[in-house]
């Protein structure tokens, strides 16, 4: 089962729409609530990151029998130092993003904590790609 979502940078009013849709699907599929929470939190953090930092982005979701795979790609400023961006507390978020309740530099590490595998590649001034895998057991 596969789904695609398009995310618009800066559009905080719609941030979370994709994650909300995925949550409903995972519920219908009867996935364990604890797993659903981890998957949608990882996806929501990624969705908020696109809205907060990028110009636009796409999320491709692939649900397989044993695992879910989220492929997240954006066009944006990219991440200069991925290792540093993974550290708790490091953030380049704007004041506007902080006023929304985010931008504390906790997102990427929270994605990692809620997934079984996280790969990040990024090119400055082009964009960032994340692959998140969460196994169903």
């Amino acid at each position: 089962m596969e789904f695609d979502y398009q995310i618009t940078g800066g559009d905080f009013s719609s941030a979370g729409f994709a994650s909300s849709h995925l949550k409903k699907i995972l519920k219908q599929l009867g996935i364990q609530p604890r797993l659903i929470k981890k998957i949608v939190i990882a996806m929501y953090e990624a969705e908020v990151n696109i809205v907060a930092h990028a110009w636009q982005g796409w999320i491709h979701v692939r649900i397989e029998p044993q695992a879910i795979r989220l492929e997240i790609q954006d066009q944006g400023p990219g991440i200069e130092d991925i290792e540093r961006a993974m550290e708790d507390g490091y953030s380049t978020a704007s004041e506007e993003v902080r006023e929304m309740g985010f931008g504390a530099g906790m997102g990427l590490s929270n994605i990692k904590n809620n997934s079984d595998d996280l790969e990040i590649t990024s090119t400055v001034n082009e964009g960032t790609e994340l692959t998140i895998i969460k196994k169903f057991q």
Partner: peptide, 15 residues
């Protein structure tokens, strides 16, 4: 004290 739609979305994701 944060009243915006993302507070509600955050709660939704966090059960």
């Amino acid at each position: 004290g944060l009243a915006n739609v993302q507070a509600v979305r955050t709660a939704e994701m966090s059960d």
